[in-house]
Simulated assay, not measured.
Amino acid sequence: MNEQNAGGARQRSVEIVVPVYNEAHVLAGSVGRLHAYLESSFPFPFTITVADNASTDATWQAALDLTQRLPHVHAVHLDAKGRGRALKHVWSRSEADVVAYMDVDLSTGLEGFLPLVAPLLSGHSDVAIGSRLHRQSAVQRGAKREFISRSYNLLLKAGLAARFSDAQCGFKAVRTEVFRALAPHIEDTAWFFDTELLVLAQRNKLRIHEVPVDWIDDPDSRVDIVRTALDDLKGMRRMFKQTITGRARIAAVPHRTRTTTPVLPAGAPATSAEHLEYAS
């Protein structure tokens, strides 16, 4: 993945994880669209990893087919569910400089991806998130989801003094070395994983970059809103206890280092005991 430019310098690279559970009906179309976009518009070496969270339909076979058809696509299969579990597994083992993820429905506009990862590739920031609550974001979703999202983020601000605006948007990136330092301290393996990552980053004085996004709600979302909300509240209580006891502070978090690698304009040519299966 780590290629060299014309001058012989190593180019910084990105690995994008697409976590999936029973998404055989949309996987090929979504990953194909993402792959085509990145090949034509993304100026850094990249890999797309489809992370199958113990699907019971034909998702794994669809992922294998994509690895045969598209040169930058890899796949990993886990025998246990959990988006956080899949991200933690792939991100911890990545050889890329920056790791990211996005939802398979591609609800977030892909035009926001380079602005998301550029501050991490340049060394300016440590974590980057897409924010649907930014005043410049363009969001299409129902009133119920809007209310839940804003209420959750208000709770984070009140209970955990969160300074980031949208913990739940499925469009995030982090410097790989930073994630490796934080990973052993992230306990959640499901939806609270994102919040836990962000709270730990903030508690350890890491820089979180926010990007306004264009976002269209997916009516076929598989998220159980009630169960997820209850799990989030439990996670917040656990994080609050960690904060007041000082256990949220991590000694070995790496500091930012500026790189001389230029961020090229969009459109420039790209020069657990669980059983796991890989394809690449």
Rank of each mutant, 00 (worst) to 15 (best):
N5V: 01
A6F: 03
A9M: 06
Q11R: 10
S13T: 15
I16F: 00
Y21V: 09
E23W: 00
L27D: 07
V31Q: 06
V31R: 05
R33N: 12
Y37I: 00
L38G: 00
S41Y: 01
P43K: 00
P45S: 03
V50C: 06
S55C: 05
T56K: 14
Q61P: 04
A62H: 02
A63W: 02
A63S: 07
L64Q: 08
D65K: 14
D65A: 06
L66R: 04
T67K: 06
R69A: 11
P71Q: 04
P71F: 03
H72R: 10
H74M: 15
A75W: 02
H77K: 15
L78S: 13
D79S: 08
R83N: 09
L87H: 12
K88H: 08
K88Q: 06
K88N: 06
W91M: 01
W91L: 00
W91G: 00
S92F: 14
R93Y: 09
D97P: 04
Y101H: 13
M102Y: 00
D103N: 06
V104D: 13
V104K: 08
T108A: 14
T108P: 10
L114S: 00
P115F: 00
L116I: 03
V117K: 10
L120H: 01
L121P: 03
L121F: 01
L133T: 15
L133M: 13
S137E: 04
A138Y: 08
Q140W: 12
G142Q: 03
R145W: 10
F147L: 14
Y152R: 12
N153R: 00
L156I: 01
A161S: 08
Q168R: 12
F171P: 10
A173H: 02
T176A: 15
T176G: 13
E177W: 01
E177T: 13
R180P: 04
D188G: 05
E196C: 09
L197W: 01
L200P: 06
R203D: 14
R207T: 08
I208K: 14
I208G: 11
P212T: 13
V213Q: 04
D214E: 06
I216E: 15
D217C: 15
D220I: 08
D224G: 15
I225S: 08
T228W: 05
T228H: 05
A229F: 08
L230F: 12
R238I: 13
R247M: 11
A248E: 15
V253W: 03
P254V: 05
T257D: 15
R258H: 06
R258T: 12
T259K: 12
T260S: 08
L264C: 00
G267T: 00
A270D: 09
L276A: 07
A279M: 15
